[in-house]
Amino acid sequence: MHVTFKVTAGDFSNAGKISSSIKTLLKQLNISSVDVKRIIVALYEAEVNVVAHSYGGEVVCDIEPHQAFIQVIDTGPGIPDLDLAMTEGWSTATAEVREMGFGAGMGLPNIRKNTDELSIQTQAGGHTHIMMRFYISEGTI
């Protein structure tokens, strides 16, 4: 199953809508609640990151019988120092992002914690491409 969604930069009122749609989809596919939760928590953090920090982007979701492969691709401005961004507590979030309950520097570490394989391609001034792979323990697809 292959689905894609557009993410609009700065649209905080709709942040989470895509994660919500994919959660519904995963539940319909009878994927275990433990797997659904870790997939959705990682995706939601990534979706909020795109809304909060990027110029916009998309979520590309491929679900196969034993794995979910979710890519979150934005159009910039890139992460200058990825190692620093992966450090718990480090954040460049604006006051607006913090008011939304995020921006404590836990997003990327939380994504890493919930994924089986995580790859992030980014560079300052370029786009950021997050690839998250989750092995699914059971499912009906």
Binding site: F12, S13, A15, G16, S19, S20, K23, S33, K37, I40, V41, Y44, E45, V48, E99, M100, G101, F102, A104, M106, G107, N110, K113
Partner: peptide, 28 residues
């Protein structure tokens, strides 16, 4: 983000953050 680290389900979330993200976070 702190709430999103919790493994337990069916908890009572006590918060002063009144915006859509509080509901979305609970959902996720």
């Amino acid at each position: 983000s702190d709430v999103l680290t919790l493994l337990a389900d069916d908890i009572l979330l006590i918060t002063g953050l009144s915006n859509n993200q509080a509901i979305r976070t609970a959902e996720m």
